[in-house]
Design a protein around this nucleic acid. Structure first.
Lengths: 230, 230
DNA sequence: ATCACTACTGCCAGAAACTGGCAGCATGCC
DNA sequence: GGCATGCTGCCAGTTTCTGGCAGTAGTGAT
């Protein structure tokens, strides 16, 4: 196996373990010696991988995606830039910052002439709806979805009446003027949609909900009879 | 210089020349022998770079962006996926296909577990406005903007009266329900915005307009007094 | 047809890089 | 202290890379 291929394998192996892994284990799984492993880790860190090693514990890969060298066409990069600009205009602060960061990372590794063409890409996104402010931090919602945790919310429905409930969030829908949490509602024992501008309180819990996110998403789609989004 | 670094340099060198470059020149610029260059080219092609070699001419790199290994955080990849999904819903067919292709390319190089998490990413985009069909192919518009060529159009303004004109397109704005070409209008001798759903005819020309795209964009922004989009 | 130029491949010996083992030091936990 | 682990320097053996050479083939100009 080539060295570069092995480096990517190393990352994948580290990701499989969620807990710290010792260098010895990593070396055995990839079939190399400990000494070489240390050198490989150093190489990966030099290339920007977020690997942390602690004596007595092992290695941890900070969550993230390592992409090998990749070729995009002009139109594909236009699409990525335009899409990121749209996300950057969304009211979700963490996410819009992430969109800008991703663009900057891409631009940073491009040669000068191409960086300029990304910066001045001619595809613009219309002004976002500034009035559509969410009552809560959507970053918490996305985190709860990623980790399959229940959310404790207070919601004001269409009639103006308030209620508190535990929900199992599994998707977040972005519409022109609002965002909607799609979740299983423990109060109603059914799927429910919650407009983020009608949430008056949102608290993340540590309680894992008992189904897989993908399963809930599929059941919800079946119930809605809507098409796949891709 | 390490081999991997040299491979990226090769791509950048090829991009500097717009015309075909002979292997001899490339080898001299990167400081390696011809024999090694042929091996490097083969390696790059195996990694997906679109390099074409023709006997008697030289090598050409098909337009596109080669990204070196790159690390994204979870939130950044969520932003890229969400943005690409939004672009995929736009009425511009070529661009929405490009967005899907870019996503697939990213997914293809990820290990299995992460590919799944991209496929089932929980951030959805609301249904696009199906009624908003453009009268023309926006791919032509984007191409004209990229290459700084004049467009010959027939436009029906707000009052319903039709007119044909030559314009210098330099930006394309994406709004919730419509898309707008931003251009210098030869007829009015001023900046004008053209809603794509009001175009009844659009023809690309080979005539290059006499200003740089970036300059026009900057002058237009100054005239509008609008903020930078990033 | 001929020539010049180029892409491309196989072969091989020397150069460079990689690898694994060893020894040693530092850090954190029990 | 004892243990597990990260991390570094050194060195010899192995692997890979590299450059030169010879040869084949495609293209365009003359």
């Amino acid at each position: 196996m080539s060295r570069s291929q092995r480096l990517l394998d190393l990352i994948q192996t580290m990701r499989r373990y969620r807990r710290p892994v010792s260098g010895k284990v990593l070396a055995e799984e990839t079939g190399i010696s400990i000494r070489t492993l240390y050198r490989d880790i150093a190489t990966l860190q030099a290339q920007g991988a977020h690997i942390e090693g602690e004596p007595g514990l092992g290695y941890v890969l900070r969550p993230g995606f390592m992409l090998p060298p990749l070729m995009f066409t002009e139109e594909e990069i236009e699409a990525l830039v335009l899409g990121s600009r749209w996300v950057a205009k969304q009211p979700d602060n963490r996410l819009s910052t992430a969109a800008r960061d991703a663009l900057n990372k891409i631009a940073a590794v491009l040669p000068d002439d191409l960086r300029e063409s990304v910066d001045t890409s001619a595809l613009l996104v219309g002004p976002g709806d500034g009035s559509a402010t969410d009552g809560v931090d959507l970053a918490d919602v996305r985190k709860a979805i990623r980790n399959e945790r229940k959310l404790d919310i207070t919601y004001r429905d269409g009639n103006g009446s308030q209620s508190s409930r535990l929900i199992w969030p599994f998707a977040l829908g972005f519409f022109d003027k609002m965002r909607v949490i799609v979740a299983w509602c423990e109060l109603r024992q059914d799927f429910r949609h919650f407009r983020t501008d009608r949430l008056s309180r949102l608290e993340a819990t540590d309680i894992r909900y008992p189904k897989r996110r993908q399963v809930l998403l599929q059941e919800w789609r079946d119930a809605q009879g809507i098409a796949q989004p891709r």
